Amino acid sequence: MEEFQQVLPVSSLSDEKRVAFYKKTYTHLAMAVLLFVIVEWFFFQVDAIVEFAFSMTQGFRWLMMLGGFMLATSFAEKMAFKNHNINQQYLGLLLYVIAEAFIFIPLIKIAMMIAESGGENILYQAAILTLSLFTGLSAIVLITKKDFSFLKSALAIGFFIALGLIVGGMIFGFNLGLWFSAGMVVLASGSILYQTSNMVHKYAEDQYVGASLGLFASLMLLFWYILSILMRLSGD
Rank of each mutant, 00 (worst) to 15 (best):
5 Q>E: 15
210 G>R: 11
234 S>W: 06
167 V>T: 08
86 I>A: 02
117 S>W: 13
37 V>L: 12
227 L>F: 08
65 M>R: 09
82 K>P: 04
120 E>K: 07
24 K>T: 03
38 I>W: 13
14 S>E: 11
170 M>F: 13
149 S>R: 12
25 T>H: 02
149 S>F: 09
161 I>P: 10
116 E>S: 14
207 Q>F: 13
21 F>H: 11
113 M>Q: 05
182 A>P: 02
213 L>K: 05
137 L>R: 01
16 E>K: 07
77 E>S: 15
172 F>Q: 05
60 F>W: 05
176 L>E: 02
163 L>I: 14
210 G>A: 05
184 M>C: 00
148 F>H: 03
42 F>K: 00
50 V>H: 12
101 A>N: 10
78 K>W: 14
128 I>P: 01
105 I>P: 00
4 F>G: 02
67 G>M: 03
219 L>F: 15
90 Y>H: 06
63 L>Y: 09
156 A>D: 07
67 G>I: 02
129 L>M: 07
187 L>R: 00
121 N>T: 03
21 F>W: 09
151 L>S: 06
13 L>C: 06
13 L>E: 13
21 F>L: 03
177 G>T: 01
56 M>W: 11
194 Y>Q: 02
138 S>T: 00
33 V>M: 04
71 L>N: 10
78 K>M: 12
218 S>M: 05
107 L>A: 02
205 E>P: 08
186 V>N: 01
24 K>I: 10
236 D>N: 14
26 Y>G: 01
